[in-house]
Structure formats: C-alpha cells, structure tokens
C-alpha cells in the first residue's frame, strides 16, 4: 500500500516539471503539453485524497478537469495553428508584438 505522501510527492514533481516547462520552453506545443502535465498533477492529488478520505467527490472533480483539459487543448491547438499560419513559427519568444 503506497502511503498518501508518496502520491503527493509524485504530484508535486509533475507540477514543478509542468511549471518549469511552461516557463522555459519556446515551443508553444510543448508549453501546452506542460500545462496538461500540471492539470494531471492536480488530478493525481485529487484521486489520492479521494481514496484516503473515502470520498468520491475528488474523483468526480477529476472528470471535470479532464473535460476542461480536452476543451482547452482544442482551443489551444487552434490558436497555435493560426499563429503558425501568420508568423510561420510557433516559438513564443518570436511572437512578442504586444509590448509596452
């Protein structure tokens, strides 16, 4: 039986990897994947707590997160496609017209 903090450590690791990816990677698709990683880190915590506390709400929440994540990826990919059509690149450091 894996104790609760084991799940939480893995979840935190996944989250930090996601955050780091969002902050440092230039490729928009990779950034999108890292966001998914953060969402799934949260999902892992939900499920772990759900089992620990014998409460199904956490698992219900995970379904919601998955649905939202699917929608988000759809929109995100559409944006990336449009970006590529306009700039011929999906590197976020090259797309910086909105600045002061």
């Amino acid at each position: 039986m894996v104790p609760l903090h084991g799940y939480l450590v893995v979840s935190a690791l996944l989250f930090v990897i996601g955050v780091t990816g969002v902050l440092v990677r230039r490729n928009a698709i990779v950034i999108l994947m890292c966001i998914e990683l953060m969402l799934n880190a949260a999902n892992l915590s939900f499920v772990a707590f759900s089992r620990e506390l014998q409460n199904l709400s956490g698992q219900i929440f995970v379904f919601f997160v998955m649905v939202v994540a699917a929608a988000e990826v759809t929109v995100g990919l559409a944006i990336i496609v449009t970006l590529y059509r306009n700039w011929k690149t999906i590197h976020v450091d090259e797309i910086r017209m909105l600045k002061g």
Binding site: V19, V22, L23, V24, V92, D93, R96, M97, L98, K99, G100
Partner: peptide, 18 residues
C-alpha cells in the same frame, strides 16, 4: 520606466503569475 515590464513575452507573464 514601468512600460519595460510589459515585454510581450508570455513566459515573463507566466513567471510573475507564479
């Protein structure tokens, strides 16, 4: 001076959110 904070780089904004 403050307008320099607005770099246009999404990742800078993400960093400040973090």
């Amino acid at each position: 001076h403050l307008r320099r904070i607005q770099t246009g780089l999404v990742q800078h904004y993400a960093l400040s959110i973090l």
